[in-house]
Design a protein around this nucleic acid. Structure first.
Lengths: 340, 340
DNA sequence: CAAAAAAGTGCAACCGGTTTCACTTTTTGC
DNA sequence: GCAAAAAGTGAAACCGGTTGCACTTTTTTG
């Protein structure tokens, strides 16, 4: 019945149609060797007329290139990682490359498997966001495949890491609270072993130190970047009966959780307690009160990562851009009153 | 210098090592033809020993299969689409297939291009979430590639569409408000042309009708699924000076926006105005007050979609599961008092 | 103007699998 | 116990591109 099964057009068809050899068609396709203008035109015309699309498998098999970039994120749906993914999409949009996303689901083994799958899929390069596999794993997996680590700082590969200065951003977030007059500032951390977390804690501590405020370890709660840990953090702080007038949360989700726990206790934000988050995810501007937070330029990071990786692939000199986060002041912070 | 460039192991190597022919190795690999147990064991051993991974290009070129499923979403980072994506990942996890994600960025042309790219990448099947290209476009693009539409209802392909009953879910959301005693219930819609939106408006109207409440067109505001449109919706409603005691928002983002606008006016939620959202995105449980909303089983949808598509690919009888959303009651709804 | 360099082109090998076909060996059925 | 069916196997063609090589033609150079 179905006589309409279109046989795919191949370069052999194009070659026949344009009266040249396969090689010439391939050369037109790849610009590897000069081709006479007449023939080039004929080939191009034939390709257009016959609606030719090169077979990616044949191409990949012969050339070893897939024109695919693997992107591993901790979690595609997390707002910050999504914005990076969007950036990568944008950065690759005008090129011959497509991104292939994989999700590490916050689990190192899953991340490792994801990298393996991507390598199996012959990606030409890898963008790993948020250090899912350990550096050792990467070393092991590294089949000399161009690789860029985003949001991590691995000492071994200084020129393969692209990250924002978490320490500095956290410093500014904390300083903002200090400048408003806060002295009893709590910090709810992210996953304690996570690079980003560690940097943010450092920045928090440094800001206090520079303002000659003693760091009270009881005001630091170890969270895990989840909303729930924000809730638990505030509950614990309240249980400790330490008074505080402000909270610096390791990310927005944590800030939301903290805000909710305060709400349940009837503690007002920002009148009683100010909150600063980190990420500036979409909802940060919509919650009540709109959240003061650190804006990470996720899309810019993504674009820069894509461009840098392409340079590495093409053996050009990559230049790692240092990207900076900035404080966005909204309504969740104000000068302290009594505190709790 | 670099003498460590590992030549990839091919089936020819395995064949030599196991003293069989390439064909036999391929047969072991694909289970297409019975192979003697001894040889099978030898081949398997050789594969393990030499750490063999089949070259996906060669395989694809020869067999025409890519073992890749293309997934097009409106926006990877949107909470609901992300949960579907996660579901697809989970549904494909134990199979030989990997997902290849593309982002339509809410733009039909981008979606169309994305589908084209995916087809160019020789995906074995396509999951299109949220009807990005029009059915006509799909018809045009449809190179007889197995395809599943999620979250859409296209009359032409009843057995290729998987969707939740938006109308029924919206009915229940509205009914919840009615049961609490609300009569002046506003609705802020999503993108008016969007299937999901249309269904939700229908459900809203039906619930009112069945409760013998006249639908007041002035209480319906045309939004676009954005937080901003929630803000604008409430501002407009207030400007219209129509009183209302509850809002049914087309999705959670809209609900957040509505809640923010009310907050700015000093209108309390839920005491003065109750709000119901739609999606149950992560933040819904974290905002203040935690949002009553419709929970869409995104991950289940994703898993079901993956499984169904695989069936279609393998020419098995697909059964389209009807998935249902359910109301999650939190703290943003309560019986009406005065209203505004 | 001759020699050298560059442009232009096709043939054929190759990338690493899958699959048809022909053929041999083992099982099954009666 | 013999014919027919099923199992088991390898050689070789094939999938659709890329690329090294040999060769011809044109352009550049001194």
């Amino acid at each position: 019945m179905d006589s309409s099964v279109k046989k795919n057009v191949t370069i052999t068809d194009i070659a026949a149609h344009a009266n040249v050899s396969k090689s010439t068609v391939s050369r037109v396709l790849n610009d590897t060797t000069p081709v006479n203008e007449d023939k080039r035109a004929a080939v191009l015309a034939a390709m257009k007329e016959m609606n030719f699309e090169p077979n990616i498998f044949a191409r990949g098999l012969a050339s070893g290139q897939s024109y695919t970039i693997g992107v591993v994120t901790q979690n595609l749906g997390s707002p910050f990682y999504d914005s990076i993914a969007q950036g990568v999409i944008a950065g690759l949009a005008k090129t011959a490359y497509s991104p292939l996303f994989a999700d590490a689901q916050w689990q190192p083994e899953v991340g490792k498997a994801a990298v393996k799958t991507l390598i199996g899929r012959m990606v030409d390069g890898l963008i790993i966001v948020g250090t899912c596999p350990t550096p050792d794993d990467l070393e092991e997996l590294n089949q000399n495949i161009p690789m860029l680590l985003v949001g991590t700082q691995v000492k071994q590969w200084p020129d393969r890491c692209m990250f924002i200065d978490n320490e500095q951003a956290a410093f500014e977030a904390t300083q903002h609270l200090i400048e408003l007059g806060h002295k009893k500032i709590s910090h709810i951390t992210g996953v304690p072993t996570h690079e980003d977390s560690i940097g943010r804690v450092k920045g928090y501590r440094r800001a206090l130190k520079e303002a000659n405020i003693d760091v009270d370890e009881d005001l630091i709660y170890e969270g895990n970047f989840d909303g729930e840990s924000g809730v638990a953090g505030v509950e614990t702080l309240l249980k400790r009966k330490k008074s505080f007038t402000a909270i610096f949360a390791a990310n927005d989700a944590t800030a939301f959780g903290a805000r909710l726990a305060l709400y349940r206790q009837g503690i007002r934000v920002p009148e009683d307690v100010s909150i600063v988050g980190f990420d500036d995810q979409t909802e940060a501007a919509l919650v009540t009160p709109p959240l003061t937070t650190i804006q990470q330029p996720g899309d810019e990071i993504g674009i820069a990562a894509a461009e840098t990786l392409l340079k590495i692939i093409n053996k050009q000199e990559p230049e790692i851009q240092k990207l900076t986060a900035k404080l966005v002041v909204r309504d969740s912070t104000c000068p302290p009153s009594s505190g709790v």
